[in-house]
Computed example of a mutant assay.
Amino acid sequence: MSAPAIEATMPASAAQIWAIPALPAPMRESAPTGSPAPVPQVQASSVAEPVAGLSAKELAQRLIAAHQRTAELEEQLAAAVAARDAAEHEAAQLEDRNRELASDLDNALDQLAGHALHAEQERLIRTPAWSPWTASTDREGYDR
């Protein structure tokens, strides 16, 4: 190997070995290109207005309204989480049932293959029209 190739894969000093690379800056400004759902835009009316010039009573009313909205959103979140958990539980049950049905189908196919093989073997083996063996099997043994 050449020296530049080795230096590219291995640091020259111990300080470079333990150096922590800088983390990239978070990309919060742009949405990912392959995002499944668009990010909801906040309307200007829902953004808090400057509080300059508002009385304490108005600020208290806004705070109460914000807490009520927060409580409503928490209830909606709890309902959505419960629905998701129920759906995951049902999906797990369906996967188990699907696995059981696949096993039953495999067993049934194995049995059918065995029956088909047996029927094919019986079809291929020709029984003679008359023989001492077939004539004597119903009389408890051979006749002398």
Rank of each mutant, 00 (worst) to 15 (best):
A14Q: 10
T70I: 09
D143C: 04
P128N: 06
Y142F: 07
L94F: 08
I125R: 11
H89A: 14
A19I: 07
H89V: 08
Q41N: 07
S46E: 15
T33E: 09
E72H: 07
S136W: 14
P32I: 04
A78D: 06
E58H: 10
S35C: 05
D106E: 13
A108Q: 03
Q61P: 01
A56R: 01
I20G: 04
A92P: 00
A83T: 08
R99Y: 13
R97N: 12
A5C: 07
A116Q: 02
L54V: 10
A31C: 02
A37P: 01
D85I: 05
V42H: 06
E100H: 07
E75M: 13
E58S: 15
P128R: 03
A12E: 03
R28L: 04
A66G: 12
P38R: 02
P32D: 01
Y142C: 02
Q61D: 11
L112R: 03
H89Y: 05
E88I: 06
G34S: 09
P32V: 00
H67L: 09
M1N: 11
G141N: 02
P50Q: 09
A3E: 00
A14E: 14
A14T: 14
P24R: 06
R139S: 15
A87M: 06
A82I: 03
S131A: 02
A102K: 14
A19N: 07
E95P: 02
G114E: 13
L54W: 06
A8F: 08
P21H: 00
R144Y: 05
L63P: 03
A66K: 11
S55Q: 05
E29Y: 06
I64Q: 08
A5Y: 05
L77Y: 08
A86L: 05
A71Y: 09
T137E: 13
A12L: 06
I6A: 13
G34H: 03
T33A: 10
M27K: 15
E74K: 15
I17P: 01
V51P: 10
S2T: 12
A92C: 04
R84N: 08
E29C: 03
A71P: 04
P11I: 03
Q111D: 14
E88L: 14
R139V: 13
I6N: 07
N107W: 08
I17K: 10
R28S: 05
D106N: 03
E100A: 14
A19G: 10
A91H: 09
L105R: 15
P11T: 00
R99T: 10
A15T: 04
A80P: 00
A86Q: 08
E7C: 11
Q68S: 13
R62P: 00
V42P: 01
A66R: 13
V81E: 09
R126W: 04
S13A: 07
D138W: 12
L94I: 06
A87N: 08
S103K: 14
W133P: 00
S103A: 14
A92S: 12
S30R: 06
L54A: 07
Q41I: 14
